[in-house]
Amino acid sequence: MQAQSKGYGKRIRRFRWTGERLEEVGVMTPSADGGRCPADVFIVGAGVQVPDHLTSAAIDVLDQCQEIYSILPRSTSRLMPSRWASKTRDLQEIYQRGGRRLDVYREEINLIWQAARSNPPVAYLTVGNPVVFDSVTAGLIERAKCGDMSVRVIAGVSSVDAIMADLGIDYAPGIQILEASSLVAHNIQPRNDIDCLVMQPNVFGTAFVTMGRKPCAAALWPLRDHLLKCYPSDHTVTYITCSVRSGNPAHLESFPLSCLGGTEMSPQTLGASLFIPAAVPLKADEYFSDRFRDQSEFERNYR
């Protein structure tokens, strides 16, 4: 049986971001059991451009919470509503101590869970969409399966959404989304007839926190060599780092795949993601394509 969350029942002022400031749009009074979205831990996605991408659902939840545990950069946190400042806890300090990323994630999860147990509800505020390559989110959801406390995820604009918008490319007919280190560690062979998005190349090949460090060229060569098994060496790929400020363009850098990582004398400045367009066209199954266009098949199968 789940423990009932405490700390609810306050009148919650609702706001929306106008592009220049937060404007009050009403008041919500949650019920004793947590109102519209009861939980002990809210996992909140801030989007890519903060505070522009904050949804009304995210603002409502962050207003409810007793504490907000944030991994947003401090420069971004300063743009958040001032009423949240006194209850916001900066998790960046844990990263700055360095060490193995898994140990950092466990420390964050334990800290958030203990806070939720003593003074719920609390929020974990993260960039983008919280279920897109976020180990703390995964750990909190896994811990909630024990059943003693509840977790709710509030979606945000993901980096994948922002990347495709910045590139001006539709997801159709499909796209492969892979994490750089996992791609090599598990010997995943991407299809070369469908666009591929490789996430987190800037922390490729290490289990340790990279904050304040820059990779040498050789750090990326295992990723380069793995991708060259699937794509020609002169295939053009693009680093993309989305802008965190509205109105600013994304940073794009295109180059041949064989140059990934750069050289020892001239290592690359890595992007947050690597976009690899399809190298060969898709081939359609002729039998299925004929059925797909056949009106008699349509009449028979859709009534």
Rank of each mutant, 00 (worst) to 15 (best):
M1K: 15
M1V: 14
M1N: 11
K10W: 02
F15V: 05
T18D: 09
E20V: 03
E24F: 00
V25L: 00
C37I: 12
D40M: 03
F42D: 01
I43F: 04
G45P: 15
Q49T: 08
Q49D: 02
L54C: 14
D63V: 03
Y69I: 00
S70H: 12
R74M: 10
S77A: 12
P81W: 12
S82W: 01
S82K: 02
R83A: 06
T88F: 07
T88W: 02
D90F: 06
L91A: 11
Q92P: 06
I94K: 07
Q96D: 05
Q96K: 09
R100P: 02
Y105W: 14
E108A: 11
I109L: 08
N110D: 13
I112E: 02
A115W: 08
R117H: 06
N119V: 03
N119D: 07
Y124L: 01
T126I: 06
G128S: 12
N129A: 10
N129M: 07
F133M: 15
A138Y: 05
L140F: 03
K145Y: 07
G147L: 11
S150T: 12
R152D: 00
V153C: 09
S159L: 14
A162W: 00
A165H: 10
L167Y: 04
D170T: 09
D170S: 11
G174I: 09
G174F: 03
I175L: 15
Q176W: 10
I177T: 15
E179D: 15
A180K: 08
L183Y: 03
A185R: 15
N187H: 12
N187C: 09
P190C: 07
P190N: 06
R191L: 05
D193E: 04
D195G: 05
C196G: 00
V198I: 15
Q200D: 05
Q200H: 11
G205S: 09
T206W: 09
A207F: 03
V209M: 12
R213P: 10
C216M: 13
L220I: 13
L223M: 14
L223K: 01
R224G: 08
K229I: 01
Y231D: 04
H235W: 06
H235E: 00
T236K: 15
T241P: 10
C242Q: 10
C242V: 06
R245C: 04
G247V: 03
E253A: 14
L257V: 02
Q268M: 11
L270W: 11
L270N: 15
L270M: 15
S273K: 02
F275R: 01
I276V: 12
I276W: 06
A278Q: 13
A279E: 13
P281I: 04
S289H: 09
R291S: 15
F292W: 13
D294H: 09
Q295P: 13
E299I: 04
Y302L: 07
